[in-house]
């Protein structure tokens, strides 16, 4: 399978990329690792006339601390996330999640930016970014702006990105030391998207859940922030009754499709099970 014809552009700087995207408009798409885009182009599910390859832009790479936040360049690959000792210490959930994505070859090339900007509800990083309350730094012809991950996803392959706009970096508030986080994903095999998956980030104080955020992958048109479930758990000692109520509340917001991964009812149930497991691990990992 060979993708349709397109013209290839390789800007060397972010302003150059933004100018190109603005000029070329809807006919152009950024190219990151290409590991979502090229398969879609082979199938003619995407037929861009121009590809703007972001690989030559050094500013889009790397992981840095900025105050209490970690800022990750959009072109940082999943393999680079896994290899970063610094990141593993501050935000272990990113490595845990990256290792559940695809296979080694895909992780060497696939980028965090592409994963979160793609808008495919099957991508794993968006729910994690919602649970962490990350912010996406966007660059466009009209300047830079920030959009919360929790506001970014509007429908399948439909995001807050305006035409001509691109993602430059992902900024994540570092959760306090002693926080507990976990990502649990059910898949049929390595390299499969989630049947259902759940991200949990929480803190404890005096044996009770002090703060809690929960998000779900691939059980709706977008990743889902399970606010009610998190609210139910906050202030509790994570007793069995509260956990059961929270899991039921999370299951209630899912709207999965029936597909090769199972029926809608099964996938909703699996979202609940993944949440149960993620909560158990996050609670075990949290201090306090």
């Amino acid at each position: 399978m060979i993708p349709g014809r397109f013209e290839y552009h390789r800007p060397k700087s972010l302003p150059e990329a933004v100018a190109l995207l603005a000029k070329l408009g809807e006919d152009a798409r950024p190219l990151a690792g290409g590991h979502s885009l090229i398969p879609m182009m082979k199938l003619r599910m995407a037929t861009p006339e121009h590809l703007v390859d972001l690989a030559g832009i050094a500013d889009l790479k790397g992981i840095r601390h900025e105050g209490g936040r970690i800022v990750i360049g959009a072109m940082t690959t999943q393999a680079e996330l896994i290899a970063s000792a610094d990141l593993s210490a501050a935000l272990p959930i990113l490595k845990e999640t990256a290792l559940l994505i695809a296979d080694p070859q895909v992780r060497y090339v696939g980028t965090l930016g592409g994963n979160v900007a793609n808008g495919d509800p099957g991508n794993d990083m968006p729910a994690v970014m919602m649970a962490l309350d990350a912010t996406y730094q966007l660059a466009g012809e009209k300047g830079a702006r920030e959009v919360a991950a929790r506001e970014f996803y509007q429908g399948a392959y439909f995001t807050a990105l305006e035409p001509g706009e691109m993602l430059a970096a992902i900024s994540i508030p570092v959760p306090p030391a002693g926080h507990g986080a976990a990502y649990e994903k059910l898949k049929r095999k390595i390299g499969d998207y989630a049947t259902a998956a759940a991200a949990v980030v929480l803190t404890k104080a005096d044996g009770r859940i002090a703060t809690c955020a929960i998000a779900l992958t691939n059980v709706g048109d977008t990743p889902l922030l399970a606010e009610e479930a998190a609210h139910i758990l906050t202030g509790t000692s994570a007793d069995a009754a509260s956990l059961a109520r929270a899991i039921a509340a999370a299951e209630a917001i899912t709207e999965p499709a029936t597909d090769g991964r199972g029926t809608a009812a099964y996938r909703t149930k699996m979202a609940g099970i993944m949440l149960e497991r993620a909560l158990a691990r996050a609670l075990a990992r949290a201090a306090g």
Binding site: A79, P104, Q105, Y108, V109
Partner: peptide
């Protein structure tokens, strides 16, 4: 890096 050359 090990890469899948059908996807580049």
């Amino acid at each position: 890096k090990s890469v899948k050359s059908c996807t580049l």
